[in-house]
């Protein structure tokens, strides 16, 4: 199973490699360090969101509010620096993550209390949080000039040529992927998504775990909000609008099953990277932006088709295997011997 999943992620990676190779063949500047840096920078924020979304999606839930959470925390971060320009970076990050976690907790609490699918609840909070953002900003825009130099530097700085934001995203990815893959709580999230009824019977605190998943997703969306403010410097109330769909697309393309139970944060991150790369490579290839959307759509459909095909093959193999087992394990008359005494 792990081999099959790994192959699924390799597939996305391969698609990414092909795309890069094709674009670079057309325009070698696409592989310049500047252009790679740009792609990584833009991908970082989507990766952080996609990793958070993975935590929710493996539990057979979805968090549509992440774009609004990102927008709200980005604006809040700007406001914080306007009010207290001397705020240390760490404090700003913690504040953003905290605010995001709070939003996630709101989602989690509503889902637990209302027993309504997460799709509906987070669709609601998507609009509510955006509304809060708008009324708070009331048309105001925060510009780079309002933000301290050090914070903006954080958004563009590099270490050995690698953008710091990309390093942050990679660190988040590593931590969350390890947590999901190799820690009990992480595995319980998969169990819940795989078969919620069985999870309940086996004593997993389903409600608490799903709540936690939403808090994590919210916290990471909060972090993404801070990163967004640092990278772009300009923040108004529309930041992050529609981002949720990109995130869900990245997660699905990366092989995280929308019905829960399977997929990894690595896959989702590669999916996010692929979607970002498509954007810039189609620009390099001077393809009409309309086709960019169509390409993303086609990619999603292809990914879902691939997942279906893989699942069907696993099922066929398993069936063949158990049939073979049954045939091999058959010793003459063992059924008859048991039934002969039974029911007579």
């Amino acid at each position: 199973m792990t081999a099959l999943r790994a192959r699924r992620e390799l597939g996305v990676l391969l698609a990414l490699a092909l795309l890069v190779a094709f674009t670079a063949a057309d325009n070698s500047r696409f592989l310049s360090s500047q252009s790679i840096r740009d792609v990584l920078l833009s991908a970082s924020i989507l990766v952080v969101l996609a990793v958070g979304q993975t935590v929710v999606v493996v539990t057979r839930n979805i968090d549509l509010s992440v774009g609004s959470v990102l927008g709200l925390t980005a604006f809040a971060t700007g406001k914080l620096f306007v009010a207290a320009p001397g705020t240390p970076l760490v404090v700003a990050v913690l504040a953003g993550v905290g605010l995001g976690a709070l939003c996630g907790a709101l989602n989690g609490a509503l889902i637990a209390a209302a027993r309504v699918p997460a799709l509906v609840i987070t669709l609601g909070t998507l609009y509510v949080l955006r509304g809060v953002d708008h009324s708070w900003a009331s048309g105001e825009q925060i510009n780079a000039a309002d933000l301290p130099r050090s914070f903006l530097d954080f958004g563009t700085a590099t270490v050995l040529g690698v953008p710091v934001l990309a390093l942050v995203a990679a660190a988040v990815l590593l931590v969350v992927a390890t947590w999901l893959g190799s820690y009990r709580v992480g595995r319980e999230l998969y169990a819940i998504g795989s078969e919620p009824a069985a999870a309940r019977l086996s004593g997993i605190p389903v409600g608490a775990r799903v709540f936690l998943a939403f808090v994590v997703s919210g916290a990471l969306a909060g972090l993404a909000g801070v990163l967004h403010a640092a990278r772009y410097g300009t923040v108004d109330a529309t930041v992050g609008s529609g981002m949720e769909l990109q995130v869900v697309a990245a997660v699905v393309v990366g092989g995280v099953a929308i019905f829960g139970g399977s997929g990894t944060a690595y896959g989702a991150a590669i999916g996010a990277l692929l979607l970002t790369t498509i954007g810039s490579s189609l620009a390099v290839l001077r393809v009409d932006p309309f086709w960019q959307q169509a390409a993303v759509g086609g990619l999603i459909l292809a990914a879902i088709g691939l997942d279906r095909a893989l699942a069907a093959r696993t099922a066929r193999r398993a069936a063949a295997r158990s049939a073979a087992d049954a045939a091999a394990g058959q010793d003459a008359g063992r059924r008859g011997e048991r039934e002969a005494t039974h029911g007579s």
Partner: peptide, 28 residues
Amino acid sequence: PTLFPDLSVAENIFMGRQPTARLGRIDR
């Protein structure tokens, strides 16, 4: 049956009680 179809057989058996190594990591 109360199995998790997406997870491995071993994980199904030990869900929530997986043996752990250093730092609470699951020892597969």
